[in-house]
């Protein structure tokens, strides 16, 4: 299978100030390696602070790696980002990532301009995506009047505006109601059917099991296990039991 994301010995450190003079080095990602094939749904799982978001930030060209290799579509995420950016997009969970004082349509119009969509295709694409995330009847309302779930759906629409080859989703279902979460899962499945690649982080293990072709479990910046969901589960009945065992909790 065509490898679309390649991560080798990737490391990312942060410098944190401690007092006035002292500094402390925090290792957020500590020499991880994995590959993602074209058309796969790949899960990055782990506790808060495990390094999942930092990994996604490096892959989406937002952060420079401290060491190691981080390639998307064969290009370096730091140095060749211009060749990557129009082919990817990302969705971070929560209520951020949209302009609240613009309408849903205005938001999408602006972001489609930033992704250089042809004006002839723009309207069609915006309508199509608004329909997909079930916001068509609120398209001309200000985002600040939206509920939490609606803002998140608008963010999902924004993340799909450029019809990306790879979509990075960092806890995209956080705060979504069950209907919204199901809608997003259906969108992810639909994206896979279209041949898109999705890299996903989530704390909902059932969701990960349902969606992911492959996954890695991270702990303290390192990968503690990788493989298809059945491999991760090993002898445990559920993925949750296996996960808790791997990240150092206790399975009752």
């Amino acid at each position: 299978m065509d490898k679309i994301i390649e991560v080798r010995n990737l490391r990312r450190e942060y410098i944190r100030k401690k007092g006035i003079r002292n500094k402390e080095t925090i290792v957020a990602v500590d020499g991880i390696s994995f590959e993602v094939g074209r058309g796969e749904i790949f899960g990055l799982l782990g506790q808060n602070g495990a390094g999942k978001t930092t990994t996604i930030k490096m892959l989406t060209t937002l952060l420079a790696p401290t060491a190691g290799e981080c390639k998307v579509l064969g290009f370096d995420c730091f140095g060749e980002e211009e060749k990557i950016r129009n082919k990817i997009n990302f969705i971070f969970g929560g209520e951020t990532g949209v302009y609240r004082r613009l309408t849903a349509r205005e938001n999408l119009r602006y972001f489609s301009n930033l992704y250089m969509l042809n004006s002839s295709k723009q309207k069609e694409r915006i309508d199509e995506i608004l329909e997909l995330v079930d916001l068509k009847n609120r398209a001309d309302d200000l985002a600040e009047t939206f509920s939490k779930g609606m803002i998140q759906r608008l963010q999902i629409a924004r993340g799909l505006i450029n019809d990306p080859e790879i979509i990075f989703m960092d806890e995209p279902t956080v705060g979504l109601d069950p209907v919204g979460a199901r809608m997003l899962r259906n969108i992810i499945i639909k994206l896979k059917e279209q041949g898109k690649t999705v890299l996903l982080t989530t704390h909902y293990l059932q969701e990960a099991e349902e969606l992911c072709d492959k996954m890695v479990i991270m702990k303290d910046g390192r990968i503690v296990k990788s493989g298809v969901p059945s491999e991760i589960k090993g002898g445990y009945v559920t993925l949750e039991d296996a996960y808790i065992d791997l990240v150092g909790g206790q399975v009752s």
Binding site: T60, T61, N86, T96, G97, V98, R100, L114, Y115, R158
Partner: peptide
């Protein structure tokens, strides 16, 4: 930065 759009507009292809 606080509305989460800085990262998005920064990584846009333009």
């Amino acid at each position: 930065r606080h509305s989460g759009t800085l990262a998005i507009i920064y990584t846009a292809p333009v």
